[in-house]
Design a binder for these strands. Structure first.
Lengths: 373, 373
DNA sequence: TTGAAAGCGCTAACAC
DNA sequence: GTGTTAGCGCTTTCAA
């Protein structure tokens, strides 16, 4: 009799009130007289009553749960993203459901369908789905995309265009003339952006860029692609992400090719490990955790504006989350080039470099020559 | 009218059957005549009907959701664990809820209470809660612990005792006489185990071990602790985990202390990065992803044995999961020492080493001398 | 301010 | 094999 976990009715009975009053005492405390409320809350605590999230979700349709879909949990990039999202969700009293879509649009669809109704909304990170598919999802549920710009979906973008430009100019200024771009997954929006930016800078700065890929964004793929880069006779490699860069580093080391003496390498994201690999990686540092946090905050903002509860401006119990969100604006996060040891002057004879470029090179000459010699 | 997402009733109406028949067509297809079943399934598909997970969970009490609690998402160790758990859960058609307990027993309790009822069971990874607390949880819900042995809770253990012994003997055989152990969090069960093992081997092999810690299992803590180790005049450092080891590596490098020439370093876990840091890390490779998978499978086994549905041996629709699980046995996973570049012969004059040890040292003499020079 | 009552969408006896 | 009928625990009108 008193063994089952107590429900709202048990508390009500003990307090001599109706179940609905108990419910109110929790969800709309201001609508219950202080006396009754205190009594109810005290009794509930004493009985060890805990609201049943499922039962609560059924009539309200709100689960206080968010779904986070990533293409590959394996990838440390998403570790940071997950971390940010989890923190933001927890801070707002939300629960986070995590799912791996294994880099396929199909799995993404499946998971979204399975979770729709069980979560209040989705964060789709680096979605591999088509714009059209994303719009369909958007029509059915609340969703925020990360690393995608799909009108009219709200999104969190990491501004890799600017960073990529910085990276390319960094290399150009070091005297590199011919660089390789190791491309990411075919369906990656940021990959397309990055490649386009690189081409633009190339035209402007008179660089040659060769594209290698599409590649799985993994260390192994980077190792394989390193050989292609060598074959293509480039002096610098820019990669879609740090995993590829780390693979390149490893392969070049195995082959006895000096970095940055013979080839410079630029990664992207500044994931865990980028600072302690060898040589440490010059990379486009992305505020990944912020991206995760922003995405959740944005989503929370959407949800809040969804049902503006008449009577109170803020949501009830502990509802933090985003503020001023819910607008149609994308959140754009800055990226910055972090220069470490994996980039240096282009090797060999100075062919057509400006005095300024030559000077830049000379500063590091000792190392470069020693290594290349 | 036909705008709302269709429910079981809508399908029933269209098929001219009762709602319960539709329900059955999905949950117990064999209890419905093939004709009706096909008709129902077809209509449902056509109408785009999707069972509502929440509504389904209310009466049945089963959410097909599992909770995974980790002390720190930031730690790549848990990345691997999460990955394994997520895969196992997905494979069994379960959804995974992820929560970070921020290394505190308190948060762990809070999260468990919040999630109880919303998940079918928990995987508690490297729990920082007391044995007693864990038993309380066990009394209320299904739970599997990882990296803890708390009778009678089912658990997945990574056998670090054996690995630690291997590591200590590896160092002893290289001529190290005095080593430091960088301890993990105070509440860590595996830390206690590891330290005890180390002491035992020390007695047996006539080594001195000094304990530094407890330490937060992070790179930063490792950097700070490296200084203590140097002060303690040890020739080798064994760390609670790879993060600490990577911190040590970094700090020693900053201080110009050669690894392994002057100090050898052994990590634990073989996380992402252990193979490409510099020097690459000798470490106790732990099958972390397997641990995550096993934990979920074990939990699934428990759940399955919970409600043996009369009539069918296996669970319905796609229920995979563990088999033969649910027994009282812990799953014990092996560990193995992976030797890389961060360990080498003890520096300096051979004091009281056996011929065998001396020989082991000599093989690497050139490097050691050059480095120590 | 509080109570009564009607669900939320689905499951699971139990009856036919 | 299929329909009836209670709920699951909570929210939410609507009255009182």
């Amino acid at each position: 009799m008193s063994d089952r976990t107590p429900t709202i009715h048990d508390v009500a009975a003990r307090c001599g009130v109706n179940a609905s009053t108990v419910s109110r005492a929790f969800t709309r405390p201001e609508r219950v007289s202080p006396t009754t409320r205190d009594r109810i809350l005290a009794t509930a605590a004493e009985m060890g009553y805990r609201p049943n999230a499922i039962a609560r979700a059924l009539p309200s349709g709100r689960t206080r749960t968010l779904g986070l879909l990533v293409p590959d949990i394996t990838n440390p990039f998403f570790l940071d993203l997950i971390r940010g999202a989890e923190r933001a969700a927890t801070a707002a009293g939300y629960t986070l459901v995590l799912a791996d879509t294994e880099e396929t649009s199909q799995q993404e669809t499946t998971v979204v369908e399975r979770l729709t109704g069980a979560v209040d909304g989705f964060v789709l990170a680096s979605s591999r789905a088509s714009d059209e598919r994303l719009r369909e999802i958007h029509a059915k549920t609340r969703v925020v995309v990360v690393n995608r710009r799909v009108r009219p979906l709200p999104g969190v973008l990491i501004d890799s265009a600017h960073g990529t430009r910085q990276a390319a100019e960094h290399l150009a200024s070091l005297g590199h003339r011919r660089i390789a771009y190791l491309a990411g997954p075919r369906a990656s929006w940021s990959d397309a952006r990055r490649w386009r930016t690189l081409q633009a800078v190339a035209r402007h700065r008179d660089l040659e860029v060769v594209r290698i890929g599409p590649l799985a964004p993994t260390v192994d793929a980077g190792m394989a692609a390193a050989d292609s880069a060598v074959l293509d006779d480039v002096t610098a490699v820019v990669t879609f992400n740090d995993l590829l860069a780390i693979g390149v580093l490893r392969r070049l080391r195995d082959r006895g090719i000096d970095v940055p003496g013979q080839i410079s390498v630029v990664g992207c994201d500044d994931i865990f490990g980028a600072d302690f690999c060898h040589p440490s990686l010059t990379t486009l540092a992305a505020p990944i955790e912020s991206a995760g946090r922003s995405a959740v905050d944005l989503l929370l903002g959407l949800l809040a504006s969804d049902r503006p509860r008449p009577g109170d401006a803020q949501g009830a119990e502990g509802g933090e989350g985003a503020e001023g969100a819910g607008a149609g604006e994308d959140v754009v996060l800055p990226t910055r080039l972090t220069i470490r040891e994996s980039t240096g002057p282009a090797p060999g004879r100075a062919r057509g470099r400006s005095p300024r470029q030559r000077a830049a090179t000379d500063r590091r000459t000792a190392r470069a020559v020693g290594a290349t010699g």
